[in-house]
């Protein structure tokens, strides 16, 4: 089967951090969908846990005026991705739907890309991933099980995108907004994560991504990587006047 490429699709994500409760539903959903190896105690000890989406928790203030701020973070699918040009073998490249793609077969494991990802979103398979035989039944047949020695990261659930596009081709129509969602977006109970085609001005994601959205910002925007994930600022009505939070 060939992949139709004339789509006018640009897949984007909006993360409204005002809603995130840190519940980790997205994290486990991603692990289930994408055959992410089990993060054992040893793996955590080695600081090698793989979580394509992770919830970063930052402390702010001191007791009793302490806050925990949550940042759901996944590959930002940068429009100008620093991880791409450093890869000697084109194992990571940009496709025409705005995705930063990882070709597992091609990766030789230089970890150059991981160093150059300012968002820390690339994960290396330090060991051969193993599952007890019975647990292998759960593996998603649509997703490659990665070998050791290669890089992996959030794919925006490309297999779900392809499935939706294939269905759309069969039904001779375009993909509808909200017709499918990546696993993390699908799971997120609070609606923190919104996904869609930002080339379609009527999509929910395009509406939320608008440049005049009062809470819009992107991570490390000054680096110019043009992230394809837009964040909406946390709202804290009790934010102290003098706090340095980029609040203006």
């Amino acid at each position: 089967m060939t992949v139709r490429t004339e789509w006018d699709h640009k897949w984007s994500m909006v993360v409204d951090i005002d809603r995130c409760t840190g519940c980790q539903a997205c994290v486990v959903a991603c692990q289930a969908e994408n055959n992410v190896p089990i993060n054992t105690e040893d793996i955590f000890k080695q600081s090698r846990a793989i979580e394509w989406i992770r919830i970063e928790r930052y402390w702010e203030g001191e007791f009793p005026d302490v806050k925990a701020r949550y940042l759901p973070a996944m590959c930002q699918h940068c429009g100008n991705a620093p991880c791409e040009p450093v890869c000697p073998v084109y194992a990571t490249y940009h496709n025409d739907e705005g995705l930063n793609v990882q070709v597992y077969n091609r990766c030789i494991g230089t970890r150059f890309c991981a160093n150059n990802c300012p968002f820390e979103m690339r994960f290396f398979n330090w060991w051969q991933p193993v599952w007890p035989e019975s647990l292998r039944n759960q593996l998603n047949p649509d997703v490659t099980v990665r070998n050791r020695g290669i890089m992996e990261k959030c794919t925006f659930c490309v297999q779900r995108i392809r499935r939706a596009e294939r269905t759309a081709i069969q039904e001779e129509r375009d993909v509808k907004d909200g017709e499918f969602a990546p696993a993390c977006v699908q799971a997120c109970p609070t609606g923190t994560l919104v996904f869609g085609n930002s080339n379609d001005p009527n999509s929910r994601v395009a509406q939320l991504m608008k440049s005049d959205h009062p809470r819009r910002y992107r991570l490390l925007e000054h680096l110019g990587t043009e992230p394809n994930v837009v964040y909406l600022k946390k709202v804290d009505p009790y934010l102290k006047e003098e706090a340095h939070n980029g609040s203006h």
Binding site: R48, G109, A114, N115, E120, W127, R148
Partner: peptide
């Protein structure tokens, strides 16, 4: 034989 896991690398110290 076993993988780069034998080394002290981790995330973010990949080199």
């Amino acid at each position: 034989n076993m993988g780069q896991g034998l080394n002290g690398y981790n995330r973010p110290v990949m080199w």
